[in-house]
Structures are given as C-alpha cells and as structure tokens.
Amino acid sequence: MAVDMNMPILIIDDYKTMLRIIRNLLKQLGFDNVDEATDGSAALAKMRTRQYGLVISDWNMEPMTGYQLLQEVRADEALKATPFIMITAESKTDNVIAAKKAGVNNYIVKPFNAATLKTKMAAVLGDF
C-alpha cells in the first residue's frame, strides 16, 4: 500500500533545534503534516486527540521519556498500532534491546542524516 504523504507525523524532542531539523528533513522527504511535542507526556496528550500515522521520538526527555511514552502507547488499545521510531543519542546495546522489547519499530542513532531517516521510515511504512 502506498504511503500517505499527507499523514500526520508527531515528532518529539526536548531540543527545539532537533525538532526543527527533523521537521525540515521530513519536509524534504515530502511530509509536511508534522506536529511537535517536547516530552512524552505532551506527546501522549496530543496522540489522544489526533491519530498519527507515525511517531518519531527522542529518548532522553523530562518528565516523561521517549521510552516511557513508547510503553504507554503500546499499552493503550487505541494507540498501540501507531508506528514508532526512536531517534536518540542513547546508543548502548541495552537501550536498543529495551526499546525493541517495548515495541519500537525502528531505532536511529544521533547524529543521523536524511538518507538514514528515509530508509528507516520506509522500513516501517513501506517505500515512498
């Protein structure tokens, strides 16, 4: 099935610079419908008011981390099917394994480039 290029995407990072970078990279990849949040709890609140086609989240945020957000999403019947990609500087094996066990669809290590983002999105959503 073709990827809906107008689907809403939620990006979450406590660094505004990073939100801006991801938003621009997504725009370059053809995705313009992007919402932002600066931590897991704000993201969760947004997810309960709007259905997103993809969530791209940082890990290390306060008060709710990206990992906690992922657990909340996967435990919520209405949200559990949402594709979830983690983009983080946490690059230890234990982190990746924990995220995978919690149900993350893919994992990108910072710093990353547009090609990596596109490849991982295609792996999760299908080619676009």
Partner: peptide, 17 residues
C-alpha cells in the same frame, strides 16, 4: 546542500547532551 546543513546542525543536540 541545505539538507546537509540541517544534518550537520544536529551537532548542537549532541554537544548539549
């Protein structure tokens, strides 16, 4: 070129952490 600039700007997040 602009994409490369954006990618490079992610240094700020990493150095900040």
């Amino acid at each position: 070129a602009c994409m490369e600039i954006f990618e490079a700007c992610s240094f700020q997040d990493i150095t900040g952490q």
